[in-house]
């Protein structure tokens, strides 16, 4: 009887130490789910989800505060991927946050009108606008995510949204059905 208690006590101590050691030695830094969600989000940093960027939205989803259908730039693709990752049912995009664009867009500054106030530069989440105080500004097209955050601060309304037409390098084969519909 006593032996059994002693043996069990010893065993529990040994395993307890083992678990304690493992908890320290193999500690996972940060929240891997947040990273996985963040990897799916389109990183436009547009804030249409009502969070201050993609990472905060990812944290909110992981924390159960936000739904998976609040990201218009990601659209259906992102919703499906998030549903797949989190094991929940996909749902249509919440129209309160906006609608999915047909083509990706970028912004263009009308350089004749720009007064060089730097407000758009401060608003850009990815440093895609180049310029200095009282100097003309311009958007670096390749860096622009199309978040449109630079538009509200502009005092002279010189920023326009233009769709990014796919070039010859971005062209995609259509599904055969679609082609049959367009060219009978």
């Amino acid at each position: 009887m006593l032996t059994a208690i002693v043996v069990l006590a010893l065993l529990s101590i040994v395993f307890g130490l083992l678990l304690g050691y493992a908890a320290i030695r193999f500690k996972v830094e940060g929240d891997p789910v947040v990273d996985q969600i963040d990897a799916i989000l389109p990183q436009t940093q547009c804030g249409q989800c009502t969070y201050a960027g993609c990472r905060p939205y990812a944290e909110a989803i992981a924390g159960g505060e936000a739904d998976i259908n609040q990201c218009p730039p990601g659209g259906e693709t992102v919703i499906l991927q998030l549903a797949d990752l989190l094991g929940v049912d996909p749902k249509p995009l919440n129209a309160d946050h906006g609608v999915e664009k047909e083509l990706p867009t970028v912004v263009v500054i009308d350089e004749q009108v720009c007064i060089g106030c730097t407000l758009c530069i401060q608003a850009c989440p990815v440093d895609a606008i180049l310029g200095a105080a009282k100097q003309m500004h311009t958007v670096i097209k390749n860096e622009c995510t199309g978040c449109n955050l630079c538009i509200p601060p502009c005092p002279v309304d010189c920023i326009a949204i233009v769709p990014l037409e796919p070039g010859i390098n971005e062209w995609k084969w259509p599904l055969p059905d679609k082609e049959a519909e367009t060219t009978p």
Binding site: L41, Q43, T44, Q45, C54, P125, V126, E143
Partner: peptide
Amino acid sequence: ERDKRKSDHARDRHEFR
């Protein structure tokens, strides 16, 4: 893959900012 590269790039730039 292009979209992924682009979003990774945007994330890097945003984080750096």
